[in-house]
């Protein structure tokens, strides 16, 4: 039997197919104009890779943006919040994990789970962009580098140009100011990543830390933000091999499997 999980984010959409015991197939692609098209495309591509049809999925769960509409369109049997899905997915990969820091394009969440991977507590950022992928996106454009480069750039320097403001609008002005004065891109990138980590840490404090800790979502790929967060928390986060952006869809598929079992 196969179980599906679909996670549509603000920038990318992911799908995961599980069989009884393992990860069977997965896909990630940029989102299109509406979440239903994105969901349809990404789950379609995953199924196609294994020559499966949608009806081969015993149960499918949608999460992320438009999760309700995706269910209403018949692409999923149930919709679950991305908070539960990221918690469940991370716990399945690393059963020791209890705190998950999930940073996506628009949102940042800190999630606490129990020994069964069930949600215990969580906090999500307010509307401010400063602790989300959007902040890195804007800052990388200001620096004139790609968002993927902003993490590695930090490792090229020992110097950090501290941003004096936690606000993304003021940070942008400040970066412009430093660039005009000929500041080194790497030093600025290090400052930007540190600011980002500081904002996320404000959320971490609200939920509290229980070891082990890991990161999911697109920003988890930024090693510099990860390093700064580790410094702030005073611990090492655990890592895993899977693409960090797939964790939400994986969690959705795991919940699909549990729900299907519950219905039997």
């Amino acid at each position: 039997m196969f179980y599906g999980g679909i996670d549509v984010g603000s920038l990318t959409a992911q799908a995961v197919i599980l069989n009884e015991n393992s990860l069977y197939a997965y896909k990630s692609m940029p989102v299109s104009s509406n979440p239903i098209d994105s969901a349809s495309a990404v789950i379609g591509a995953s199924l196609q890779e294994k020559n499966l049809q949608h009806q081969d999925l015993t149960y499918c769960v949608s999460t992320g943006y438009g999760r309700e509409q995706i269910q209403k369109e018949g692409l999923a049997d149930e919709n679950i919040s991305e908070i539960s899905c990221h918690g469940k997915g991370a716990w399945w990969i690393m059963p020791r994990v209890r705190t998950i820091i999930d940073i996506g394009g628009q949102d940042a969440k800190v999630i606490r789970v129990d020994q069964e991977g069930e949600l215990v507590n969580f906090v999500m950022n307010d509307k401010c962009a400063a602790g989300t992928g959007r902040f890195l996106d804007v800052m990388s454009k200001t620096l004139g580098v790609s968002v993927e480069e902003i993490g590695p750039l930090s490792f090229k320097t020992q110097k950090v140009i501290e941003m004096s403001s936690r606000c993304s609008i003021f940070c942008e002005t400040e970066v412009h100011h430093y660039l005009q004065r000929g500041a080194d891109l790497a030093d600025l990138a290090a400052g930007i990543n540190r600011t980002m980590a500081g904002r996320v840490m404000a959320l971490v404090r609200r939920v509290g830390i229980e070891k082990e800790v890991t990161m999911t979502g697109g920003v988890a790929k930024n090693q510099a933000v990860r390093r700064e967060l580790e410094k702030l928390m005073g611990l090492k986060m655990i890592t895993y091999d899977l693409d960090s952006q797939l964790v939400g869809a994986l969690g959705a598929a795991l919940i699909a499997r549990r729900l299907a079992e519950g219905k039997q």
Binding site: S81, S84, F122
Partner: peptide
């Protein structure tokens, strides 16, 4: 405009309540 984010949190809370 922010209802989606509010609903995400409340839905997660209901899930937390199992």
């Amino acid at each position: 405009a922010d209802i989606g984010r509010i609903k995400t949190r409340v839905q997660a809370f209901l899930e937390q309540l199992k």
